[in-house]
Amino acid sequence: MSKQAKLSGQSDGRVFNAVNYTIATLIILIVLYPLVFVVSASFSNPAKVLGGEVWLLPKGFTLAAYNYILHDGKVWLGYRNTLLYTVVGTAVNMVMTILAAYPLSRPDLPGRKLLMVLITLTMFFNGGLIPTYLLVKSLGMVDTMWALIVPGAIATYNLIVMRTYFQSSIPWELQEAAHIDGCSNWRLLVSIILPLSKPILAVMVLFYAVGHWNSFFGALIYIRNEHLYPLQLVLREILMISTAGSADGNVGMENQVLLAEGIKYAVIIISSLPVLIMYPFVQRHFVKGVMIGSIKG
């Protein structure tokens, strides 16, 4: 019986592997195909795309759409604004999150439990859209970049992850020894805790920065001035608000419709490029961040 069992066990393993690898390959293709299509379409002649000729590789290679975008003030302005919001916003996020996470990681802080409860509570219940909007409005932040930065200054989940990291990865004895040597809490934080926490700081910068780069809803409700539009809002206008009607019925109309179509593909690529270029380099940090987060605090 043993020989037969072994044989069937082996064939079971082989069938299993075959099925598993096939499914895995299918998943890779399903995830990649839409992305590849958009990239190819952005380099193709829009007429061929609209005619359904583009499947996998570009047809009628052209850079017209990219050329148009590079000379379009709106997209550049959006890029510049988003860059500004991302840098300032992430800086504010980091300062606020560290200032909250470190004291709350200290086991000798009186009132720590109560503060943690009050903070965690906000993850499950909050005032909601309308009261928050009225608050931001009454603070005079509408139509300033602060409306995009201050209301989201701390992500509670990130705060909890960072606190857990401080608590579990930095030996308390080290902090005590520093105290005995007369080190103040501020110096302790700046010269001991932060240098020892580079992995989690990197992860948090990435989380916050990608969040700012990709966010559009804050700008949708708080920003009316077109000069302050972040990239995602410019993008929304180009992608979702139909451009077909913008042509004025002259001979160039068909060309304009085609160009507008090409611009859609190209603008998707251009706006996602920074994050996707960064991706291979920072990918393992992201994964680490999720892992740290999953060690419950």
Binding site: P34, N214, L235, R236, L239, M240, I268, S272
Partner: peptide, 12 residues
């Protein structure tokens, strides 16, 4: 990928 881009990709 941002939500705006995802919906853009869906549209095309």
């Amino acid at each position: 990928i941002s939500v705006v881009v995802i919906v853009g990709i869906l549209t095309v």
